[in-house]
């Protein structure tokens, strides 16, 4: 946020393609070893196309885009709220985009979305960044 943010400004956003084993590394990092994330065979046995990404991993990527907007200073991320929508999958690019919905000098509000292909995996996401 080097220049003052104004309503309607697009944020830089980010793209990430999680590799096949990312859900395993995220499981280790977070402690969430739900087999739908780390065992493709188990995931298929419960009707999923394969292992799916952790929702909180995708929210973590959204938080990274918001923190990047705050010049990389984690102290400036005041709040983040998301709704989980579709499932996210490894080996497919995730794109985080967003824009400024309000800026009042003390705080900047962002509206963010995470998409994979034409699917929104996180939407109605709002972040508050301290100016």
């Amino acid at each position: 946020m080097s220049a003052p943010a104004a309503e309607g400004d697009a944020i830089p956003g980010l793209t990430v393609t999680p590799d096949r084993y990312l859900p395993v590394r995220y499981a280790g990092a977070s402690g969430d070893f739900n087999p739908i994330h780390v065992d493709p065979e188990f995931a298929r046995s419960v009707g999923l196309p394969g292992a799916i990404l952790h929702g909180l991993y995708m929210m973590g990527l959204v938080s990274r885009a918001a923190t990047d907007f705050a010049d990389g200073d984690p102290r400036r991320l005041e709040s983040l709220s998301v709704q989980f929508r579709g499932m996210g999958f490894p080996e497919e690019e995730i794109s985080i985009t967003g824009s400024v919905t309000s800026a009042d000098g003390d705080r900047v509000e962002l509206d963010l979305v995470a998409t994979q292909g034409d699917r929104e995996v996180i939407r109605n996401s709002t972040a508050t960044v301290r100016a």
Partner: peptide, 12 residues
Amino acid sequence: VHGAQSFDWSEP
């Protein structure tokens, strides 16, 4: 399913 999540941060 995990439907929604929000966090409000204070002290780092």
